[in-house]
Deep mutational scan, measured.
Amino acid sequence: GLMCLEHEDEKVNMYCVTDDQLICALCKLVGRHRDHQVAALSE
């Protein structure tokens, strides 16, 4: 899978609806997407 741009060791596994961007779990937990609307990726 694709790796996160901000956290190079994390794979992107969710999608930020607010930013129209693929993000990883760390982005959602501690990153700038924590208050955004996110959706899980169905692979």
Rank of each mutant, 00 (worst) to 15 (best):
Q37W: 01
L2R: 14
D19Q: 02
L41R: 12
E43G: 09
I23P: 14
L26D: 12
A39L: 05
V17N: 15
S42H: 12
T18C: 05
H36P: 01
N13P: 02
H33S: 01
N13M: 05
C27L: 00
Y15K: 15
S42L: 03
D35F: 05
D19C: 06
L2G: 15
C16A: 02
E8S: 15
Y15P: 07
G31K: 08
A39S: 12
E8L: 13
V17P: 13
Q21F: 08
L29I: 06
T18D: 07
R34L: 03
S42Q: 09
K28T: 12
H36A: 02
L5W: 02
K11G: 06
C4E: 03
G31I: 00
E10S: 08
H36Y: 03
A25V: 04
Q37V: 06
H7E: 03
C16Q: 05
D9T: 05
A40R: 10
L2P: 06
L26C: 13
H7L: 00
M14N: 09
V12Q: 15
R32Q: 10
T18P: 02
A25M: 05
L5P: 11
M14V: 03
A40P: 14
E6P: 00
R32Y: 03
Q37N: 06
A40G: 11
D20W: 01
V12D: 15
G31H: 11
T18M: 03
H7D: 01
V12G: 11
Q21K: 14
M14K: 13
R32D: 08
E10H: 12
H36D: 00
K28D: 09
V30C: 07
V30A: 13
V38H: 12
D20R: 08
D9C: 13
D35E: 12
A40C: 09
M3R: 08
A39F: 02
Q21L: 07
E10K: 12
M14H: 07
G31P: 09
N13K: 11
K11F: 07
E6F: 11
A40N: 06
V30D: 13
C16M: 01
G1C: 03
H36M: 00
C4T: 08
D9A: 03
H36V: 01
A39W: 03
C16T: 03
E43D: 05
M14A: 11
I23V: 13
Q21I: 07
Y15W: 08
R32F: 01
A25G: 13
D35C: 07
I23R: 05
C27M: 00
E10D: 06
M3W: 04
G31M: 02
Q21T: 08
M14D: 12
D9G: 11
T18S: 05
S42C: 10
H33P: 02
A40M: 07
H36C: 09
C24N: 01
V30N: 13
Q37Y: 06
L2S: 15
M3P: 04
D35Q: 11
A25D: 08
D9R: 11
Y15C: 11
Y15S: 09
C4A: 01
V38E: 05
E8R: 13
K11C: 13
S42G: 12
L5G: 08
A40W: 03
G1K: 12
E6V: 06
D19F: 05
L2K: 15
Q37P: 10
S42D: 14
C27I: 02
D20E: 06
I23K: 04
C24E: 00
N13F: 15
D35N: 07
M3L: 09
M3C: 05
K11S: 08
N13R: 07
E8A: 14
K28V: 03
I23S: 03
D9H: 08
S42W: 03
D20Q: 12
D20C: 04
E43Q: 04
Q21R: 11
K11H: 14
C24M: 00
L29A: 13
N13D: 08
V30L: 09
V30Q: 14
V17R: 14
A25Y: 04
I23T: 08
D19M: 00
Y15N: 06
I23H: 04
A39I: 08
E8G: 12
L29M: 12
E6L: 07
T18Y: 02
C4P: 00
K28Q: 15
K11L: 06
D35V: 04
L29Q: 10
G1V: 05
L2W: 03
S42T: 12
H36S: 02
A39D: 12
D9N: 15
V12H: 08
H7S: 00
G31D: 13
S42K: 13
